[in-house]
């Protein structure tokens, strides 16, 4: 841990939208719905239309995946989504442009970019942070940057006012948690299973214990993801945690609405957003 400088005194300005959204959720006494989409999946145009429809369908926060050729923590669904996007010409530059286009109409819904480090490293860390903030990005989640590599992106991002949202997992024990939470901001993303995305699901009692454990270490909101596929599961998690993240199940909706040649069927956007609306409705009823 040679990389950690004390940043406690540094103001984090970019997290306004995230903090405001979680305050609103608290005021409504409900957990939030976070939806994940891969930028550019299945093509740039469809992806932007989906992104623009998410908030209206009930997503409280949005995670936008940055496609990468080697997503080693993702299961088959999100791997395939990334590949579709890359084959359709997705790049990090286009992902940022997609956020910019989204921000023209929506100034409230937080967008968090999620992905792997290499495309950012090649883009240039300083340029990425500046361009992401300018585009209206509210935070980043980088799967393969643990606290041990904070000097790469986490510390420069925090210094520039771009929240760095950390993943905590079932293998992150009490001794390690403070290290993981040290430079996280916005919220904490709890990975509810030891595994890759879109595979097994955790038991809600385990999730409850984990969320309670995290709350003992941090005042930040806790979002829970991995293995949440149905409205019922989303509601269950939204009862216990501050937000539930749904990714692979959403991406599977897109995959299910493609022609043999991978082109979007006319019903793709409607079907996917209907699914989001179903999740949102279940999440909203969860604590009543």
């Amino acid at each position: 841990m040679s990389t950690t400088a004390n940043l406690a005194s540094k103001p984090v300005i970019g997290s306004d939208r995230i903090a405001r959204r979680f305050e609103e959720l608290k005021a409504e006494n409900r957990g939030g719905l976070i939806t994940f989409l891969t930028a550019g999946d299945p093509d740039g145009e469809t992806s932007l239309a989906l992104l623009k429809g998410l908030a209206g369908a009930g997503a409280d926060l949005i995670e936008l995946g940055m496609p990468f050729s080697d997503p080693m923590a993702d299961g088959p669904s999100i791997q395939a989504a990334g590949l579709r996007a890359l084959n359709a010409g997705a790049t990090l530059k286009k992902t940022l442009a997609q956020v910019r286009a989204f921000r023209k109409d929506d100034g409230d819904t937080p967008i968090i970019l999620m992905g792997y480090y290499n495309p950012i490293y090649v883009y240039g860390v300083e340029a990425f942070i500046a361009d992401a903030l300018a585009a209206g990005v509210d935070g980043v989640i980088i799967v393969d940057l643990p606290p041990e590599e904070d000097a790469e992106l986490c510390l420069p991002a925090l210094q520039a006012g771009l929240p760095f949202i950390r993943l905590a997992t079932p293998t992150t024990d009490d001794e390690r948690l403070p290290t993981v939470l040290a430079h996280t901001s916005g919220f904490v993303y709890y990975v509810s299973i030891a595994g890759i995305t879109g595979t097994k699901s955790a038991e809600s009692t385990d999730i409850g214990e984990a969320v309670a454990r995290l709350h003992r270490h941090t005042d930040l909101p806790i979002a829970v993801g991995f293995g949440i596929r149905t409205p019922d599961q989303a509601a269950e998690v939204a009862r216990i945690a501050d937000a539930a993240v749904v990714g692979s199940a959403l991406v599977d909706r897109i995959a299910g609405n493609l022609t043999d040649k991978g082109k979007p069927e006319p019903g793709l956007i409607g079907d996917t957003l209907d699914f989001v609306a179903g999740l949102a409705s279940a999440v909203r009823k969860a604590r009543t």
């Binding site: 080693m72 923590a73 480090y117 643990p146 590599e149 997992t169 293998t171 390690r176």
Partner: peptide, 21 residues
């Protein structure tokens, strides 16, 4: 070095799930 770097190379760029391991 103790963080696994050879100059700028090496390191530990893995998911948190694997880090403790």
């Amino acid at each position: 070095d103790e963080d696994g770097h050879f100059g700028i190379y090496g390191g530990r760029y893995v998911a948190e799930t694997l880090m403790p391991l």
